[in-house]
Amino acid sequence: MTRKARDLAVLFATLMLFWLLLGGGFAADSLLVGALAALLIALLFHDGLSFFTELRPTPRALAAGVFYYGYFFRELLRSNLRMAAIVLSPALPISPGIVRVRTRLKSRMGRLMLANSITLTPGTLTVEIDGEWLYVHCVTLEPGDTEAATAAIATGFERYLEVMYG
């Protein structure tokens, strides 16, 4: 199967899944309408991205996906507790800055997921993506060695995303 056909099939499957979650049900007419709409959208936006675009269809990638979401939700909770502590303290202890971080990820979806993950994790927000460079805003930037500290922003997620998307 060519790459384009695979992307199309993946997008179609994602849209069908969304249709079913929306409450389409499994009646024949509802399935038919959903399939037609999904096919039309998939054909119109065949270069669109979905959760599963470029996802490697190997068991290892799926396992990495499970670990990724576990890690992600833990980080999301941690980031919120930290942000709440900053916001609630009267002194508002911040020392922000925008730094650049290099990513090893090659795929579009991998980079998008990385940027999203960085935005939702402790004290960091992706401002711009330029090829392999991500520009990240940090709420509390430690003084001193920025290179090593900023590399750590990406590696936690890259570990999993590399296996999932490449």
Partner: peptide, 16 residues
């Protein structure tokens, strides 16, 4: 409401 500039405001807003 409390953060001093747009980037920090987005940080607080989007995570929470």
């Amino acid at each position: 409401l409390r953060m001093p500039d747009i980037y920090n405001r987005l940080q607080a807003g989007t995570k929470a």
